[in-house]
Amino acid sequence: MTITIEYYLILSAFMFLVGVVGVLINRNAIVVFMSIELMLNSANLTLVTFSSFLGNSIGQLFVFFVMTVAAAEAAVGLAIIIAIFRNKLTVNIDEINILKW
């Protein structure tokens, strides 16, 4: 038995959809952010899989850029959550509806 490329792709698809379910069922803004990180990581796993199986390092280069964007997104997103918590004293995304008309 050898590990073919399909095993990694199915694991990556599973992790992505767990992240989607996490975004949909959680009401805590920080847990929603963590689910988004999970989805980004599953996309990274697909990129590294193809890069390794094709013997081409461009895929791993793009993982590097995805990590940069994820770090920037986490810093700005958590700053926004702290600012909202100061104003509304909650991080429940059902109560943060000031943009809803």
């Binding site: 920037a72 700053a79 600012a83 104003n87």
Partner: peptide, 20 residues
């Protein structure tokens, strides 16, 4: 990517510092 990290650092500082 380096410029994006700089912008994110400044943005996080500005957002977390003052009350809007």
């Amino acid at each position: 990517a380096g410029f994006l990290l700089l912008a994110a650092t400044i943005g996080a500082l500005v957002l977390a510092k003052k009350k809007f």
